[in-house]
Simulated assay, not measured.
Amino acid sequence: MASKVVMIIVLVLDLIAFGLAVAAEHRRSTGVSKPDSEINYNYCVYDSDIATGYGVGAFLFLMASQILIMVTTKCFCCGEPLKPGGSRAFAVLLFVICWVTFFIAEVCLLAGSVRNAYHTKYRTNFFENPPSCETVRKGVFAAGAAFIFFTAVISEFFYYSYSRAQGRFGPYRGEAGVGMAAYK
């Protein structure tokens, strides 16, 4: 049967990752174009860069959660075979969906963190167009948070289905003959 300790640890790791992704969305960097002291050039000034740390933290917590699930289930490919039936079929389906949502969440978090950490370094003449103070688009970390939520739910159901499908194939332990009661 499914270990409650593993399910609770995975849930806590996923909740921390979700919270960090939401915090990263709210604390994204913003940049504004400012003139220098001689008013010859414009350059970009960025505010806090803490969203990068939040994004990387969410990335690592989600990865730890996925590693724990895969180590516990032996990544679905090693170990004893599962009992045939609905639980095994459901576990296979959830295994694939879990990896897809995990991959999408990790890509969103990593791309958002890298893009948030990038700051434009060049400057332009004052009479030309102001520099492009590029920042991460709104919603990248939010998409990562949504896929963290999907991954959390699906991985919990996957682990439960996998645990239900575990079983040993063994010899029939029943009586070999036809059971008859004493007839009087």
Rank of each mutant, 00 (worst) to 15 (best):
M1L: 09
A2S: 09
V5N: 01
M7P: 02
I9T: 07
V12T: 11
L13V: 12
L13P: 00
L13C: 08
D14S: 14
A17C: 04
A17S: 10
F18I: 08
L20C: 12
V22R: 11
R27G: 10
T30E: 10
T30S: 13
S33W: 03
P35Q: 12
S37P: 07
I39C: 11
N42R: 15
Y43L: 03
C44T: 09
S48K: 13
D49V: 13
I50N: 09
I50T: 11
A51W: 03
G55N: 02
V56N: 04
V56E: 04
V56Y: 11
F61L: 03
L62Q: 12
A64L: 13
A64C: 12
Q66L: 11
I69F: 05
I69R: 00
V71Y: 06
C77R: 04
C78S: 05
G79T: 02
G79F: 05
L82W: 04
P84V: 02
A89E: 09
A89C: 03
F90T: 10
A91Q: 00
L93V: 05
F95K: 01
I97A: 09
V100M: 02
F103Q: 04
A105L: 01
C108M: 06
G112C: 03
S113P: 05
Y118T: 15
H119Q: 15
K121G: 07
T124Y: 01
N125F: 09
F126L: 10
F126V: 12
F127L: 13
S132H: 14
T135W: 01
R137A: 15
R137I: 14
K138T: 14
G139W: 02
G139D: 06
G139A: 07
V140K: 01
F141V: 04
F141I: 05
A142Q: 07
A146V: 06
F147A: 04
F147R: 11
I148T: 15
V153W: 02
E156N: 09
F157D: 05
F157Y: 08
S161E: 06
S161D: 05
Y162M: 05
R164I: 11
A165K: 03
A165W: 03
Q166P: 02
F169D: 08
F169H: 10
G174F: 05
E175G: 08
A176T: 13
A176V: 13
G177Y: 11
G177M: 07
V178W: 13
V178Y: 12
V178M: 14
G179V: 15
M180H: 12
A181L: 11
A182P: 08
Y183I: 15
K184P: 10
